[in-house]
Design a protein around this nucleic acid. Sequence first.
RNA 1: GGAGAGAUGGCUGAGUGGUCGAAAGCGCUCCCCUGCUAAGGGAGUAAACCCCGAAAGGGGUUUCGAGGGUUCGAAUCCCUCUCUCUCCGCCA
Length: 422
Amino acid sequence: MLDITFIRENPELVKQGMINKGEKSADAVDKVIQKDEEWRSLVTEIDTLRAENNSLSKEIGKLMGQGKKEEAQAIIKETSEGKEKLKELEEKVSVVAEERDNLLYSIPNVPDASVPVGYSEEDNEVFKTWGEQADEEWLQPHWDIAEDKKWIDFDRGSKVTGAGFPFYVGKMARLQRALINFFLNEAVEQGYTELQAPYFVNEDSARGTGQIPDKEDMMYTIPRDGFFAIPTAEVPVTNFHRDEILSKEELPIRYAAYTPCWRREAGSYGKDVRGLNRLHQFDKVELVKIVHPDTSDDELESLREYAESLLEKLKLPYRTLLMCTGDMGFTQTKKYDLEVWSPGQQRWLEVSSCSNFGSFQARRMQLRFKNEKGKTEMLHTLNGSGLALPRVVAAIIETYQTESGDVKVPEVLRPFMGAEII
RNA sequence: GGAGAGAUGGCUGAGUGGUCGAAAGCGCUCCCCUGCUAAGGGAGUAAACCCCGAAAGGGGUUUCGAGGGUUCGAAUCCCUCUCUCUCCGCCA
């Protein structure tokens, strides 16, 4: 959610941002400004009326205390009239406030000036490419190798739960555990605080990070208890400080959390979902930063660099994309995607997405701090994967396969695997 | 799952229908006093929103777990919900 005052003062900027993000119309901007004016004048009216009634009520109290019941009675009659008018206005103001808020929720975050304007994948900018993209003929996709070695059991996963819920068997299970350990150790070494988070969240939290009302369908629900299975650790971790006012000494806050993630991914099909490319349950280490507004630009760069360093340590070729306005999503001001090279599939696979949300999320969840002047101000939030496991696993299997049919263990994982060959 | 107790400001804790946004204490900030230290005195110390103002600031409204209700008036009475604690049961 954007700040209504900011919209009021920069309507053209907000409109342009909306258009650049691919919204059909930016009418909501003018509408929300008008609704806000309406709301403010109603509030002024109500406040005045209430002030009158309050002072009359105090008068009654005073008279009652002095035993002047008849004089009090006369004033009571007067306040009763004001009360009815008040009720009417209050109903009106709540309707207007809701209309204003709905409009406000429909306006996306304004893209940063450094973001390329564009409306499709092709307009994303290749920010960086690292490593050689292997393309030998004999390279196999990871699902063939995994099936051969009985490392991943998709069929039994389907039997036990459903499609997209595989079992990892033996060495493959251990590889996952190795990656989780590696990612968390690296993050802690970089100064992130490790956090173990709940896997279910309530409705307020889902709303706080914006899964509700927009993206409800992506989540699995536990209706009986009103919970949602988290689609990413971003949800519980960012909500950790919801409704809090932090002191500036606590900043920046950096968290790393490993959790499974559940996504319904309705409507997916074809080669995109083969093997480990897209699952309903997967593991991920998520990084969340809560920072001073002045530092969020730098924090995004260091977040990206950190995520990139993980792929470099695993020696997995990748590229970094700077997402264009139309491909970056509703809540972000700027976003980088990291894509690892999948030699067996000859395509790029997204393994991390590093985003700056500015104060957009913070405002929605009332995440604030006391600034230098002692005023409360919205914080900035960022997050990025560090990293999502399945596609990294796919890339490892495909990149480290040998012509003789083995798969080697990346050097940095050997201490965790206790072997050089998986 | 059953029985009971509770939720008040940064913290402790008083307040059971009327000058209560809330006593008192602690903490914190500033000032005074004190040649160090210790102690003492005074003032201040929540958030959101609206209006006025260039600003400093001023005025108003709302908020005592959340939501609804009774009343001219609610921290205080009624209803619903959430959370915390204690005991019992169950359990990794």
